[in-house]
Simulated scan of single mutants.
Amino acid sequence: MALRATIFKLELHIADMVRGYYNSHVLTLARHPSETEERLMLRILVFALLADEQLVFTRGLSIADEPALWQKDLTGLILNWVDLGHPDERRLLQASGKSAQVTVCCYGGSASQVWWQGVQSTVSRMPNLKVISVAPEAVRALAGLLQRTMTLHISIDEGTALVTSDRDSVPVDISVWH
């Protein structure tokens, strides 16, 4: 018998002082059986960092050729392809051809630095690539906020996101690598 996805309900309030984006979203997320709590919370954080009315969660881990999130315009054109972790060069080059913007969020600490050094020479010439990094300790702390039904407030200002729930607050430093 196959394991089923776990459903999470989220009320997300975003205050992004850098972009001037202030909005609330009511979201339903499915956590694939092989997805960790850390990765799920990172998807939520990245959603807040890039928030837009057209940004949506994809089927992600269930479908290999879809990113974790994407933003499409009304014609179906992909405006932003958002991957998490350490995608290979070929995937990034393909995403760059399909999308106006490609965003990668790394969260593996030194493993992410090794990945970036390995792909940097090939993908650094992609003008539509943005690579950001979050410390693994911060991602683990975010996982401590996870509940099946939750309300999160995320304030973003100058490279830091403050994620607050009824349980606790977690400051997350966002490093831009490219």
Rank of each mutant, 00 (worst) to 15 (best):
W116M: 07
S99R: 07
S169C: 10
L145I: 07
K98S: 09
A143R: 06
T151D: 12
A138T: 04
L142A: 07
R167K: 14
C105D: 02
R148D: 10
L162V: 15
A111Y: 13
R148P: 08
A161D: 06
D166H: 13
L145E: 12
R140P: 01
V170K: 00
T103Y: 11
I154A: 02
A141V: 02
A135C: 08
V139L: 01
C105P: 02
Q113F: 06
L129K: 06
L146S: 06
R167M: 09
Y107W: 13
L152A: 08
L152K: 04
P136S: 06
D168H: 13
H153A: 09
P171W: 12
V131K: 04
V114F: 08
S133Y: 04
Q113A: 09
G108M: 04
V163F: 06
V123P: 00
Q147E: 15
Q120F: 10
V123Y: 03
L142I: 10
V102D: 00
R167P: 02
V102E: 01
S121L: 09
D157N: 12
T149Q: 13
E158T: 08
D166S: 12
A143Y: 10
T151H: 09
T164F: 06
N128M: 07
Q113D: 15
V119Y: 08
W116G: 04
N128A: 08
S110I: 11
A135Q: 14
M126H: 09
I156M: 06
L129T: 05
G108Q: 07
S165V: 09
Q113R: 15
G108K: 04
Q113P: 03
S133I: 02
R167C: 04
M150T: 06
G144I: 12
A138S: 15
V114H: 10
V170I: 14
Q147I: 05
K130L: 01
M126E: 14
T164M: 10
V114Q: 14
A138W: 00
C106Y: 00
V123G: 02
M126K: 12
V139F: 05
G109M: 13
S133R: 07
R140I: 02
G108Y: 01
C106M: 11
W115I: 05
Q147C: 05
I156K: 05
A138F: 01
V170A: 05
M150Y: 09
V131N: 02
T151P: 02
A138E: 03
W115S: 02
I132T: 04
Y107G: 00
A138M: 03
L146F: 09
V170D: 01
P127N: 10
S121N: 12
V119W: 11
S155R: 03
S124W: 12
C106P: 01
V114R: 15
Q120A: 12
R167W: 07
D168Q: 14
T149N: 12
V114P: 03
N128C: 07
W116S: 03
K98I: 07
A100D: 10
S133G: 12
I156T: 08
P136Y: 00
Q147D: 13
S155K: 03
T160K: 14
W115V: 03
G109V: 11
T103S: 14
V131M: 08
Q101Y: 07
R125K: 11
M150C: 07
